[in-house]
Design a protein around this nucleic acid. Structure first.
Lengths: 131, 131
DNA sequence: ATAATAATAATAACTATTACTGGAATGGAG
DNA sequence: CTCCATTCCAGTAATAGTTATTATTATTAT
């Protein structure tokens, strides 16, 4: 069962995610892959995205609006959501893992990790607001 | 439009949320309010929850599974999600607002805030795991 | 008390996602 | 190489969570 058979569709999805630095939604990925494989189905995109997440080859980001975004960069890093253009960016920043310790200070259970993202205005939208 | 007409159903929802320290889903709230108003509809619950969120009287928590949870405690505080029992707890902890500064250090846009929650095992589930 | 207005119940619609189906391509055993 | 099982695919149906619509009822102002 760990033996995934090769599939060009899945490969194309992985390829696309590894080259884009957007954090596209399943639908956006679908639109894009369709240029190469015009009759791929949305179901196939979803199934393969989930397979790739299970394999740890990509990351699923749970966005505010309830829709999922996907990220080919599996290195631990933080995300930024622009309130204006709704884009998701990567943040280059120091680790904030110490907040787990802060959170666990007065907590009787076990803190295993945290999910954190930042929001505000992305560089581009910020410039437009200043005008 | 800021003048919301009184409604006992909305009042009951607010009342319920202010007294429970769970973080119930719309459906759970619906089940509960129905004991008092047996013919309230789920649509009414959703509409009033969103109204209350708009008014800033309650908070909407965007959970992992995509479903929304609601919290009558509008003071800023952090949440903990148990991976075992899936309950959401409040965390008593020091502020971690400084992570906004860390995040903004090398960022050209504007960081306005962050959404953070912690996960792991709640006190109860943690005990059971140790057995 | 009556008219105007806003809230409700019920239901339809919508979005994102997952599951199912029949059929085609792939990979290994012989 | 051929057979067979497996895994894949496209297409579609189904589901969950939520929001919008509509006809009806309740609340407020006159």
């Amino acid at each position: 069962m760990a033996t995934l058979k090769y599939s060009r569709q899945r490969e194309a999805i992985k390829e696309y995610l590894s080259h884009t630095h957007d954090h596209p939604s399943a639908d956006t990925i679908y639109m894009h892959i369709r240029q190469q494989y015009p009759n791929i189905s949305l179901g196939t995109v979803y199934r393969n995205l989930n397979l790739l997440v299970e394999q740890g080859e990509i990351i699923k980001i749970n966005c505010q609006d309830g829709s999922d975004r996907f990220d080919g960069n599996t290195d631990p890093h933080y995300h930024f959501l622009c309130k204006d253009c709704n884009n998701v960016l990567d943040l280059e920043m120091k680790s904030i893992d110490h907040i787990n310790v802060i959170a666990g200070a007065d907590f009787d259970g076990k803190i295993e990790g945290n999910v954190t993202f930042f929001y505000g205005l992305c560089p581009e939208c910020n410039r437009q607001h200043e005008v």
